[in-house]
Write a protein that binds this DNA or RNA. Structure first.
Length: 760
DNA sequence: TGAATACCTATTTTT
DNA sequence: TAGGTATTCA
C-alpha cells in the first residue's frame, strides 16, 4: 500500500514536471483548491477537552512551556500538542506556523521525551532554520549546545550531514571528507570538461537545464537540434570528475542520502521528522523525506498550499493530499491570520479566485486602509513618486526596512532601484548579490584581474568568448580571429593585424571597429597603467564595449559602471589594476551610494515569500506580467501565478498599493492592469484615477502632451556637451533615455539616471 | 564562409 | 515580438 502510494507520488511529481501541459491523471482541477477532503476535516474547531489535558501534561513537564503554549490560540495549541504520529498542519498565511513548529519541537522534546539530537527539522532556507533554532532556544529553560541541533536545517544541509557523519558514501564511490560544488563551481567544471575533451555542446547557455532534463530521462535533444551533441558524454565525464575530485553537487547531497537510506544499510535513530513549507518540496526532496522516516518516526509537516509557488521547479501542489493519504496524517488547520488588515486579506482572497475555495483564512486585526490601485506612466515615473512617498513615510517614523517594493521580475526592480537610489532613498542590497548575477561586470573584472599577468589563453578566451568577446570577433569575423590567433606569435599581434589589416582597409562595421580599437588601446595600455589612481579610471575605460542593442544592455551597463566605481575605490588602496580587480571580485558587488543593509527592500514576488513588511508596493501589475503572458498556456501555471499574487499581497501588515503602467517597459506587458485586480472586492480597494486612465488607454499610442512634458531634463534639438564625445545635439528624450547626435562620432544613447551630459 | 531561414523561448531560485 | 541558436543554402 505504502509502496504503491509512494510510486504514485513519484510518478505524479515527475509527470507534472515533465509535461506541465495537462493535469496529472487521477487529479481534480487544481483551481478548485488544495483538497476538499482536508478542508472538511479541518473545519471543526479544536475540542477543548484534549487541549486542557495537553496543557496539564505540559505543565507537569515544563511550566515554562505550558505558559508559552497558553499564549497560542486553540488551533495552534491543538496542532503543537497533537497525539497523532503523523500530523499535517495547513497553516494559512500569517497564522504563526513558525511558532507552532517551535512549540511542537519543545512538546516532543519535553513532554514526549524525544532527544533534540534525534529530531530532524527541515526548513527551506538556512535563514529560516536559524530563526527556528533561536525560537526553540528561547523556549528552553536550560541551555543546550549546537550539537543538539545537528539535524536542524535545510534538506541539503541534512543530506550533507548524513553523508558526512552517519551514512557511508563509499558505497557510491565517494570518500570521507568529500567537498561540495556550488552552482558556480559546477558551471566552471563543465566548461573545463568541454574544453579539455573538445566536446561540441549546443545550447551551452541552457546547459544546466539540458543536463537536468537528461538526468530526468527526457533525452538529450533541445531546441531545433537535428543531431545529438556531446551532452551525454559530458554528463558521464562530469560524474567521473566529481568522483575523481571527491566532490558532490547540491543535487547529489539529496539524491545520495536518499539512495543510501533507501538501501537500508544504516538505520537512523530518527525519532521525529518535522518539515516546514512542505508544499515547496521537489520530487527528490520528497524521496529523501520518505527515506528518512522509519516506522517509529513521528512526522509533523507545516505548509500552506495557497503559497505553493515553486511548481516550476518541480514541487507538487498536491503534495499535501498525497502525504495525507500515504501516511494517514491527522490534519490541523491554522485559520487565523495575525499579520494583515481585513482589507488586505480580503483582497488576497479575491485574487486567489476559486482557488481560495475553503474560505478559512480569518482576519483578526482591526480594519485598516483599502488596497490602493494606481497607475503610472512607467517604472521611472513610478520610482520618482515612490521616492517621495517613502521619504514622507520615513519622516512619519516608518523605518526603511518596513517598506518593500515587490515585482514579478527582477528587471522591473532594477529600474525602480536605480530611480530610488538616484533620489537618495536607501535601498537594501539585492538579496544574494554576487558577481555571477552580473555577467557583464564579472567578465570585465575577470579579464582585468587576469591581465596583470597576460596569458595568451586567457586573452584568447576573452576575445572569442561567445557572449562577451563578440566585439573584436565581429569586427573581423570570429573565424578570422581564430585563424589569426593561431598564426600570429601572440594575441596582441593577432588583434593588431585584424583591426588594422595590411591593406589599410578596416573590416566590418565602422562602429564595431572603432570600439575594437578602443579595446585594443585599453588592453595594451593596461599593464603600463597598472598604478593608475582611481580618479582617471572611470574615464579611461570605454563604456561602450557592450552591445547597445542587446536586450540586457541597460542592466549590463549599470552593472559595469557600478563595477568601475568599485574598482576605482579599490585602486586607491591596492594600486595595481589586476590586484584591485581581484579584490573587487572577492568582495562581491556593492552598489553605489544609498545602498545599505537597512534600506527599503526591493524583491521579486518569489523572494518575498516568508517575509512581512508594514508597507508593500506591488509594482507593475500589468496584464501580461501578473500573470505572465506565457502562463495562459497552462492552467497549472496560471493557478500558480494567482498564488504568487496572493503571496505578494499578504506580505503587508498595514498597507498595500498595487501599481500598473500605462507605458510598460517590457514587451510582454500590456498597457492595462491585471485582470485579477478586478477580483478584489470593491469595498476593499481604491482605484486611484485609474478609471479615467483606463478609458484613455486606447489613446495611449500617442501620449497626451502633459505626459511627454513631464519635467524631462533634455528636449529635442538642445545642444549638449559630453566629457568624451564633445558637443552634440539631443535627438530624442523620454523618461528613460536621451539620444544625442555627436556628428562624426555618431549617435549615443544615455540612461537618464547615469547621464553624463551637460547643457552646452 | 556568410547569409538566409527555421525554430524556440521568454519568468521565478534555494542549497 | 524579438533575440538567440542550429541548420541549410549559395
Amino acid at each position: 500500500m505504502l509502496r504503491e502510494l509512494r510510486r504514485q507520488v513519484r510518478e505524479q511529481a515527475r509527470s507534472e514536471h515533465a509535461s506541465p501541459l495537462g493535469p496529472a491523471p487521477q487529479l481534480a482541477d487544481p483551481a478548485v483548491g488544495p483538497s476538499l477532503l482536508l478542508a472538511a476535516q479541518a473545519l471543526q474547531a479544536p475540542d477543548p477537552l484534549p487541549l486542557r489535558l495537553a496543557l496539564e501534561r505540559a505543565q507537569a513537564a515544563s511550566p515554562f512551556l505550558a505558559t508559552s503554549l497558553q499564549r497560542l490560540d486553540a488551533w495552534q495549541q491543538a496542532a503543537a500538542t497533537s497525539e497523532a504520529a503523523a500530523v499535517l498542519v495547513r497553516a494559512q498565511v500569517g497564522s504563526g506556523k513558525t511558532a507552532v513548529l517551535a512549540h511542537r519541537v519543545l512538546w516532543l522534546h519535553q513532554v514526549i521525551g524525544v532527544p533534540l539530537e534525534q529530531m530532524a527539522v527541515v526548513t527551506f532556507t538556512n535563514h529560516a532554520a536559524g530563526q527556528l533554532v533561536e525560537r526553540v532556544k528561547g523556549l528552553l529553560t536550560t541551555p543546550v549546545g549546537p550539537a543538539a541541533f545537528r539535524w536542524f536545517g535545510t534538506l541539503h544541509g541534512l543530506g550533507r550531514s548524513l553523508l558526512a557523519h552517519t551514512l557511508d558514501p563509499s558505497v557510491l564511490g565517494w570518500r570521507p571528507g568529500f567537498g561540495v560544488l556550488d552552482q558556480h563551481a559546477r558551471v566552471e567544471l563543465w566548461q573545463r570538461l568541454i574544453k579539455d575533451h573538445h566536446l561540441q555542446i549546443k545550447y551551452a547557455n541552457r546547459l544546466a537545464d539540458r543536463l537536468r532534463k537528461l538526468a530526468a530521462g527526457q533525452g538529450a535533444q533541445s531546441g531545433n537540434m537535428a543531431k545529438d551533441d556531446h551532452l551525454v558524454r559530458l554528463a558521464e565525464l562530469y560524474r567521473l570528475e566529481k568522483l575523481r575530485l571527491n566532490t558532490m553537487d547540491f543535487d547529489d547531497l539529496i539524491e545520495f542520502a536518499a539512495d543510501l537510506l533507501a538501501r537500508g544499510q544504516q538505520t537512523l535513530p530518527l525519532e521525529a521528522l518535522l518539515v516546514d513549507e512542505l508544499q515547496d518540496c521537489e520530487p527528490r526532496e520528497v524521496e529523501l523525506l520518505w527515506a528518512l522516516r522509519q516506522p517509529q518516526t513521528r512526522f509533523f509537516a507545516v505548509g500552506d498550499p495557497n503559497q505553493s509557488i515553486y511548481a516550476w521547479r518541480g514541487s507538487n501542489p498536491k503534495l499535501f493530499e498525497l502525504m495525507h493519504r500515504a501516511w494517514q496524517c491527522q490534519v490541523y488547520d491554522l485559520p487565523n491570520n495575525y499579520r494583515s488588515t481585513p482589507e488586505i486579506l480580503s483582497a488576497a482572497r479575491g485574487v486567489l479566485g476559486r482557488g481560495a475555495g475553503e474560505g478559512q483564512l480569518a482576519a483578526t486585526r482591526a480594519t485598516g486602509a483599502p488596497v490602493g490601485i494606481r497607475q503610472f506612466h512607467d517604472g521611472h515615473l513610478e520610482g520618482l513618486a515612490l521616492a517621495e512617498r517613502f521619504k514622507a513615510l520615513n519622516r512619519q517614523g516608518v523605518a526603511w526596512p518596513q517598506i518593500a517594493v515587490l515585482a514579478r521580475t527582477r528587471k522591473q526592480l532594477e529600474v525602480l532601484r536605480a530611480v530610488l537610489q538616484a533620489q537618495q532613498v536607501p535601498c537594501a542590497d539585492a538579496a544574494q548579490a554576487s558577481w555571477e548575477e552580473r555577467p557583464a561586470a564579472l567578465w570585465l573584472l575577470r579579464q582585468l584581474a587576469q591581465l596583470g599577468s597576460p596569458d595568451a589563453e586567457v586573452l584568447r578566451a576573452a576575445l572569442t568568448d561567445a557572449q562577451r568577446g563578440w566585439l573584436v570577433g565581429r569586427a573581423a569575423g570570429r573565424a578570422a580571429l581564430t585563424k589569426a590567433l593561431a598564426t600570429e606569435p601572440g594575441p596582441w599581434q593577432a588583434l593588431q593585424r585584424l583591426v588594422r589589416p595590411a591593406k589599410g582597409k578596416l573590416a566590418g562595421d565602422p562602429r564595431d571597429v572603432a570600439v575594437a580599437e578602443r579595446w585594443l588601446g585599453l588592453l595594451q595600455a593596461l599593464p603600463e597603467t597598472g598604478a593608475t589612481d582611481g580618479a582617471g579610471l572611470e574615464s579611461a575605460l570605454p563604456p561602450l564595449w557592450l552591445r547597445p542593442t542587446h536586450r540586457d544592455y541597460q542592466r549590463d551597463l549599470r552593472h559595469v559602471q557600478s563595477a568601475y566605481g568599485q574598482l576605482a575605490t579599490a585602486c586607491l588602496t591596492t594600486g595595481a589594476w589586476h590586484t584591485a580587480a581581484a579584490a573587487v571580485l572577492g568582495e562581491g558587488p556593492r552598489d553605489p551610494a544609498g545602498t545599505t543593509a537597512s534600506g527599503v527592500r526591493l524583491l521579486t514576488l518569489h523572494a518575498a515569500k516568508g517575509l512581512e513588511f508594514q508597507h508593500v508596493i506591488l509594482s507593475g501589475c500589468n496584464q501580461g506580467m501578473v500573470p505572465l503572458a506565457s502562463a495562459y498556456a497552462d492552467p497549472l501555471q496560471l493557478a500558480e501565478e494567482r498564488r504568487l499574487l496572493f503571496v505578494g499581497l499578504t506580505r503587508a501588515r498595514d498597507q498595500v498599493e498595487v501599481t500598473w503602467h500605462t507605458r510598460p517597459a517590457l514587451p510582454q506587458a500590456q498597457a492595462q492592469p491585471s485582470d485579477w485586480l478586478l477580483g478584489i472586492p470593491a469595498a476593499d480597494c481604491h482605484w486611484g484615477d485609474a478609471a479615467v486612465a483606463w478609458a484613455q488607454s486606447a489613446a495611449e499610442a500617442a501620449p497626451p502632451a502633459d505626459a511627454t512634458a513631464l519635467d524631462l531634463p533634455w528636449h529635442e534639438g538642445q545642444p549638449v556637451k559630453h566629457a568624451k564625445y564633445g558637443a552634440g545635439t539631443v535627438l530624442r528624450c523620454d523618461s528613460a533615455e536621451v539620444q544625442v547626435d555627436f556628428g562624426r562620432l555618431g549617435t549615443k544613447a544615455f540612461s537618464l539616471l547615469l547621464c553624463p551630459l551637460q547643457a552646452a
